[in-house]
């Protein structure tokens, strides 16, 4: 029996785990975006705070994912075994690329353009929404793209703390020393990452040419 037959035979569980996987990534990305985009915008003008926040996000990024899941389990409110802990950890990972690209994307908008927008009599809000954000959008989106792909990968490890997702097959396969079971998790996860990367890449190109 090859991995393909194994997947066909177990397609309902593969489907279920895939949807679980997408759900975990989606929830984590939603949190990371809701925090990361406004925070990134707010940090553009505050250089010192920006260094500290990006530094902290960088440190989080260097913690091995399995360790981060472990660290969070004893934390009250968000901790414990299960999906919510995993989502918090995933959101923390996704935060850095989103924050970083939001800040640099806006900071790199040609200063002459921003100055003439102010000189024309745009309010700070109008400068942000009509000039800075549209011009920073491709860079911001590339941060979101990186964050999504990282999340899809890291989510496979979330199975270790009982969050579900495609990682369940991988850990089960490792325990059973069964490659078919490992591949039933690994291949759909890789495909998800590729599809997300491709889709967001196309979106990025389309807004760049707008």
């Amino acid at each position: 029996m090859n991995w393909y037959e194994f997947m066909l035979r177990n397609r309902s569980e593969v489907m279920e785990r895939t949807i679980e996987h997408i759900g975990l990534v989606g929830a984590a990305m939603a949190i990371a975006l809701v925090i990361g985009l406004p925070l990134g915008i707010a940090l553009v003008q505050r250089r010192t705070t920006r260094r500290w926040v990006l530094g902290a996000a960088n440190i989080v990024q260097t913690i091995p994912s399995l360790a981060l899941f472990g660290f969070l389990i004893p934390v009250p409110w968000i901790g414990g075994v299960g999906a919510s802990t995993a989502i918090v950890a995933l959101a923390l990972y996704a935060l850095l690329p989103i924050l970083h690209n939001t800040c640099t994307g806006i900071a790199e908008v040609n200063p002459a353009v921003v100055e003439s927008a102010r000189g024309m009599g745009m309010t700070p809000r109008q400068v942000l929404w009509q000039v800075q954000l549209p011009l920073a959008a491709p860079v911001m989106l590339s941060g979101i793209r990186v964050a999504t792909v990282i999340s899809i990968g890291v989510t496979t490890i979330a199975a270790a703390i009982g969050a579900g997702g495609l990682g369940v097959f991988i850990f089960r396969g490792v325990a059973m020393v069964n490659n078919q079971v490992i591949l039933a998790g690994a291949i759909p996860a890789a495909l998800l990452a590729l599809v997300a990367d491709l889709g967001l890449g196309l979106l990025q190109r389309s807004i760049k040419n707008r």
Partner: peptide
């Protein structure tokens, strides 16, 4: 300042046209 600037045309060397 916003009203003032809307009543003053401003042209700079780098032009600063909105590229998008």
């Amino acid at each position: 300042p916003i009203q003032l600037r809307r009543g003053i045309g401003y042209v700079i060397q780098d032009v600063g046209l909105f590229p998008h």
